[in-house]
Nucleic acid binder design. Structure first.
Lengths: 290, 290
DNA sequence: CACGATATCTGACTAAAGTCAGATATATGC
DNA sequence: GCATATATCTGACTTTAGTCAGATATCGTG
């Protein structure tokens, strides 16, 4: 019925009016939108004035005036940057924090109302994740993190759940050779998480071993972010970390049920080798010399 | 990792910046956004000035001025309404049409670029349909249409494809007792399509027969619109049409593989009856007295 | 045809957003 | 230490959006 372009445009129309409603709800606190946006940016952790200006796309004159108006309301305080006194750092005062929380409550209520009015919650949330990831692809950043961090554990949990779904015989972490977290922390190894606006979208582990090689483990990309080249980026980052650690040979094991993964390895310079461990789950083994 | 509310808010953030980019791209034609919006509304077929004002949520004074500025540019012409000279009708001049097409080209290009940059096209489009339908739920309107119209045929095609997927033995329309289109047109019957901003989201047929009952056929709801109560609305509309046509007894057949449908019928006053036809596909039969 | 209701228009205003040319203070490289 | 670059601020503007109180013309009804 509708061609792809029309479908995208229908989505744009639907979303434009929803966004408009969201904006006007912010007007209820007696502050123009510009000032409200700056206050919220500061509340969300942006403190560097130049950073806020870039983020909101404001002229420096306008930005300066908006900061002043928030200062007059005693919602924020600005100080000079420690290392560079030209730059200014903005922080919420206690009153500012209260006001910020009030804006947060408005946003949360709106999100809650939206969810409450729709029975397809999970499908809707998955669709939203997918679109948010697609729109924010360029904003997806890779961070080296401790494998025991909340973000990493979330990724690993999703990874295990997916293996359980996709392996005919299911998957039980305890039966697999679960890498010790310490092996995936510098200087032995590394663990990298892809984050997009607060949501972890993928991970990969570089596990140092006592043998002459290190292993790549736990490569996972969220369903919402597949097809965006994130797996490749994660692998590149893991290889980069390996080089930094002076590792010359990488190995990994995988299962032929994970077809996309096998393709990715083959296309990025890995060569298949015979089984090199006795883990019951993998049936495909690769190595790559750096 | 993220609770549902945070996921909705992440989506809102992603989409807000995308919408902002779309808006600013409209500024490139040297016309303020307000005037561009009015021009586009007229281009998309809205001609009644009051209608445009409601649609865009504008004050009558502002609206009047925007119309004037477009007239000064010779992009539109306004005339009095034939039946009511107080109302004004706005139409694009040839120059206005050219300008409108330029805006359309911007929107189309943007949609195309978005699609071109993402390899998960179908998943992305399905997610967009789902969200647009959810956001526009209140805007989904039921229209009585000819079952041979493009919209109706699109729905039926999707319906047959879904049956083929869900029936173990597949589905072939030719083997089914395909209702004659004429039986689903007044005064014998009716065919109703649910439309949301140009996209058909569901359908239902009321098929007149020579027996003492009429039949409900081809109830279908697009995956993007499930869980929004559209099936119920379509059934209500079909029953309403039946009452208008003086029909006292309705029957329908379905298959137990379509669990949601069976549930809907049971919950809305239908009672199971023995097989009343020899169609090979259905295995469940219902009737309802009006 | 008088009356109130309705649709649009006009004039006079305000608020918000955005622009631009300097001014000021600080940092950096030679 | 000096020239140049950078970050922010200030003042003087313009444009856009929006509001509101009437004015004007037309409609529907009795």
């Amino acid at each position: 019925m509708l061609d792809p372009v029309s479908r995208v445009r229908r989505f744009n129309r639907a979303v434009t009016s929803a966004v408009g409603a969201l904006d006007t709800s912010f007007l209820g606190r007696g502050r123009p939108l510009g000032a409200a946006r700056v206050l919220n940016a500061i509340g969300h952790g942006r403190s560097d004035v130049g950073d806020i200006r870039d983020y909101l796309g404001l002229d420096s004159g306008l930005m300066s005036r908006l900061l002043r108006s928030l200062e007059d309301e005693e919602l924020i305080e600005t100080t000079a940057h420690d290392d560079d006194a030209r730059r200014r750092i903005a922080k919420l005062t206690p009153a500012g924090k209260r006001e910020f929380n009030a804006y947060e409550a408005i946003s949360n209520r709106q999100a809650k109302d939206f969810l409450a009015h729709h029975s397809q919650r999970e499908a809707l949330l998955a669709a939203m994740d997918l679109i948010a990831s697609a729109l924010g692809r360029d904003a997806t950043a890779l961070h080296e993190m401790d494998p025991r961090s909340d973000e990493a554990r979330y990724c690993l949990g999703e990874y295990y759940a997916e293996l359980a779904r996709r392996f005919k015989q299911g998957f039980d972490v305890k039966l697999s050779r679960d890498p010790d977290a310490k092996d995936m922390v510098r200087p032995r190894g590394s663990f990298i998480v892809a984050m997009s606006d607060g949501l972890p979208l993928g991970c990969v582990g570089l596990k140092g071993t006592s043998a002459e090689y290190a292993e790549i483990k736990r490569l996972w990309v969220a369903p919402a972010a597949r097809g965006l080249g994130l797996g490749r980026r994660l692998m590149d980052a893991a290889e980069h970390a390996a080089r930094e650690l002076g590792i010359a040979l990488l190995r990994l094991d995988t299962n032929s049920a994970l077809a996309e993964a096998g393709q990715l390895y083959r296309r990025s310079g890995w060569t298949e080798i015979p089984r090199f461990n006795d883990d019951p789950y993998p049936d495909l083994f690769f190595e790559k010399r750096l």
